[in-house]
Design a protein around this nucleic acid. Structure first.
Lengths: 219, 219
DNA sequence: GTCAATAATATTGTATACAAGAACTACAGA
DNA sequence: TCTGTAGTTCTTGTATACAATATTATTGAC
């Protein structure tokens, strides 16, 4: 079941869905996929099974598997949960962080600042991801780390939209500094609150995301 | 994939694992299960796939699927995440609760009190579950509701241990009252804090759970 | 008697075959 | 032109067959 082939195929399909090769609503045809991957239908079906639980696709009996069309509401809900999970990571990180951990956080954050200075959005995107994943890890709770990373991954396509908001990179950077500071000083509630605000989608971010989702739908 | 048979089998297997028919570490033999359910190996494999992502079982290539032996550390981690998710539900519930919602919460809580008065642990367990699920729902975030319910379900076998702690039912009940009160008054942070403490495993609860896990392992 | 090597066995992973149900098309009638 | 129906085709869901690998048993040497 985690057999090499179906495992690889599952990862690949997930990646392709997230990066938009399969548009929302598209059907994942078993025979086409089988031909494409030079394999029988069986491993394809096993791979599709794996995607089901992740919420990326949905299945209608006797109809097939379709790429899930997440509604705007649903996406907002996921961001809200994301904010809460990140807040939890932040709280625990602040409670448990060592001097060394803080140092690593500062180092990654410096990478963000560097990317911002260069105006390199892609690099910032990468460094920003590393920054957040580091906070997940420093929560000291592996389970929380995995769950948070899972949702992070799930929201990937929508998060990218956010960065293109005018001035968002600079604001994001400022928020990072505050977060690092709170964690360094062991201020758990402050760290949680800052991360919740940092990740959450309110105000202008909210409208921007809504607009992007609408554009995405019509065009 | 959500085909009637493999779907039913997946749910059944999950239930059986959670209720302990398959001990942790046990192998889930495809042919035995196929015979038992009067079906070929194919639907069994599809059902096992579904269990993989939930973390209930793990798979070793060319070896088979085994019921996952969650370590004590892992269980503690899950409880910690549970506490955070419940806190999030509580916060959002408090922010969004209507008069009617609070009324329903009070009603279910009265059911808990009734069960406590009768000293009926099973009934309390049921009512307590309903109480918490209601809070999940009243968060107004379906995604959060589902994710929280999922973890709640996952922790079911371990939560049952907790209730047998001497005096735990009464204490749990007292905490419920405070939670309802906070939600009713829209005190988001208080509700969150109370729920985090209510669900979290610290102090005596911690030692009790650890002890139970050890007993469970040896005997 | 113990260990190692090899053969036998069993179990998973994949392919293919078949059955049941859904979607689509063609055609008749209004 | 639109609608309803019957038949065809296509796709999924399940069973079975086969291949590859892991496990176990057996045999032989020391």
């Amino acid at each position: 079941m985690e057999s090499s082939r179906s495992d690889q195929i599952a990862s690949l399909l997930e990646e392709q869905i997230l990066t938009g090769r399969f548009a929302p609503g598209a059907r994942l045809d078993e025979v086409s996929l089988a031909e494409e991957h030079q394999v029988s239908r069986t491993p394809i079906r096993e791979a599709l099974q794996r995607l089901l639980l992740s919420g990326l696709v949905e299945h209608t009996p006797r109809r097939g598997v379709f790429v899930r069309q997440a509604s705007a509401v649903e996406i907002m809900e996921m961001f809200e949960v994301m904010a809460e999970l990140e807040a939890a990571c932040g709280r625990l990180s602040a409670m448990r962080s060592s001097e060394e951990a803080v140092e690593r956080l500062r180092h990654v954050n410096a990478g963000c600042r560097e990317a911002l200075k260069n105006g390199d959005a892609d690099a910032y995107y990468e460094e920003n991801g590393a920054f957040h994943h580091l906070i997940y890890a420093q929560s000291g709770n592996r389970f929380l780390e995995n769950e948070t990373a899972r949702l992070h991954r799930r929201l990937k396509p929508y998060r990218r939209m956010q960065l293109h908001l005018r001035g968002r990179m600079q604001q994001s950077m400022d928020e990072h500094d505050g977060i690092v500071d709170a964690i360094a000083k062991g201020k758990a509630e402050v760290a949680a609150e800052l991360l919740r605000g940092h990740v959450g989608v309110q105000g202008e971010k909210f409208h921007h995301l809504l607009q992007q989702l609408r554009l995405d739908k019509t065009g």
